[in-house]
């Protein structure tokens, strides 16, 4: 069986061991909310007052300040994340963490989760940034 052959081959191949010795350090921002909004906008997102005018409304469990990403867990219909042209995210502005390390400490994944950061984009044609490759062309956020 291939499984056993591969595991045997791997076990036999390991010639030295490295022990795990990680310092999960991370920056703490003075103003997490401000940093979050700045990075969310940098990724092409926009802050909005209301969810009016968007195709899809998604609820984020928390946001990450260092990159403007929103953690969205287990939406029933997975095509909601990328099929529609515009998405608005609802996020409690007090639920923002500093970095991804902190995010992983509180992230709960039921069956599928996504860090969503702004509209779909590509720079595959001569490095020119184009918004709206396959996913949403417009991503807004309502901070409650």
């Amino acid at each position: 069986m291939s499984r056993d052959k591969i595991l045997k081959s791997v076990k036999k191949s390991i010639s030295f061991r490295v022990e795990k010795n990680v310092n999960y350090s991370f920056t703490k921002f003075d103003n997490k909310l401000e940093k979050f909004i700045e990075n969310f906008k940098l990724a092409g997102g926009e802050t909005v007052e209301s969810p009016e005018g968007f195709d899809v409304v998604l609820n984020a469990q928390f946001g990450v300040a260092e990159n403007g990403a929103c953690f969205i867990n287990s939406v029933k219909e997975r095509k909601l994340y990328t099929f529609y042209s515009s998405i608005v995210i609802k996020l409690d502005k007090n639920r923002i963490v500093n970095t991804m390390e902190e995010a992983m400490q509180i992230a709960k994944i039921d069956d599928f989760a996504m860090f969503l950061c702004g509209p779909s984009k590509t720079a595959d044609i001569e490095q020119s940034l184009v918004i709206g490759a396959h996913g949403a062309k417009r991503v807004g956020i309502v901070l409650e």
Partner: peptide, 28 residues
């Protein structure tokens, strides 16, 4: 998952200079 956090901080920044890719999807 904690280790994933470290890599998601490094990957996009090293590849394209973005803080993170638009979609980082965890299939469970």
């Amino acid at each position: 998952l904690q280790d994933l956090g470290v890599f998601l901080r490094l990957l996009a920044r090293s590849a394209t200079g973005q803080a993170i890719t638009t979609y980082s999807s965890i299939f469970k």
